[in-house]
Nucleic acid binder design. Sequence first.
DNA 1: CTCCTTCTGTACCGATCGGTGCTGAAGATG
DNA 2: CATCTTCAGCACCGATCGGTACAGAAGGAG
Lengths: 205, 205
Amino acid sequence: MEMGQRAPVGRPRGFDADMALERAMRVFWEQGYEGASLTDLTHAMGITRTSMYAAFGNKEELFHKALERYTEGPASYGARALREPTARQVATAYLHGSVLATTRPGAPAGCFGVQGSLAAGGTGGHARDTLTTWRNAHTALLRDRLRRAVDEGDLPPDADPDLLARYLTTVANGIAVQAAGGLAREELRKVADMALLNWPPATGA
Amino acid sequence: MEMGQRAPVGRPRGFDADMALERAMRVFWEQGYEGASLTDLTHAMGITRTSMYAAFGNKEELFHKALERYTEGPASYGARALREPTARQVATAYLHGSVLATTRPGAPAGCFGVQGSLAAGGTGGHARDTLTTWRNAHTALLRDRLRRAVDEGDLPPDADPDLLARYLTTVANGIAVQAAGGLAREELRKVADMALLNWPPATGA
DNA sequence: CTCCTTCTGTACCGATCGGTGCTGAAGATG
DNA sequence: CATCTTCAGCACCGATCGGTACAGAAGGAG
């Protein structure tokens, strides 16, 4: 048992799984879980149904993996915003990041986590719940970061981190809906800036 | 041709079309256009497929009629808000109305116009475009009202009615997404109030 | 080469999709 | 009563849904 490296036996797969997942992510992003058929997905991925099932399990697992890829790719602005030094910079980076991510040329308009499945019937319920959980997780991360900001004197002691986090994600979700409807990046940028006008001032530690 | 009243000949229909449309509206509201199957719809409406097609045309027409009913019913807060005397009151009524409408007990959570179809594949494209148009129409109504507010000195001369209207609908859409995820009414109310903090002061005519 | 494992493509599965033809039943009119 | 018109219900349409059985192709190991 001295082999640390994986030694793939058998016929190697004839496609780039990473690229295939990227393509699948875009289809889900544009059409939602239920709106994306296996035919749509496999055509975009450039592989057959059989290869997709062998590599990713089934449609629901493919959706989960596409969501993970979305989180680490187009939605990585969220994690980056959390690392900003002050609460105001966190808020600004978060909303500006959401504008950029939902209006990126060459990518689907809007947010995977919003339009991927807001409503569903039948088999789509799991996907809808998954994305609700995903959105709430983002809110929780933001809330924790803002709690720290209160401790650091970066927000007034009477500031409500829960409310502020919920406010930011609500605006970000609204931005995603507007972007999905085709609103231009510059317009959304102005909306985001307006939403930041009422941000509580720092107390100065 | 002196008969002004309609004289329905033949067998009268055996169900209440108004109530059936109300039920259909709720199914579309909860499950979206593509997520709502004809089986779901007709079961909720308490009628057969044939009766549905005779009374409403097809699925797409039923969706349009359900949207009209939604506009005049649960979404009528929008038209009411436009009739408020001042811009601030318009904005407050609009956001508070959206909170109430998207969190009404006994009704689906969220907004028909948002989750009805943000993303779609195949035949759902028309529904998605219809709702995008619907949301933009609401924004335009709000913008026109706020333009009047500038003329009336109810908003500063340098206020941007386009931006303010887009801001309000963006927040309202975000509220709808949060509500669809199950956020409580009181929480959303606080978010709405926070979004109203930066509303421009009246100049005093 | 032969064996073994894995991947690929075809062809197909039962279920469900939106939509309809047809047969009677039901009420209005005479 | 008979007649006319509309509605209701069943069975069914072709198309598509997500998912899979099977056979052959393609590589590594001996």
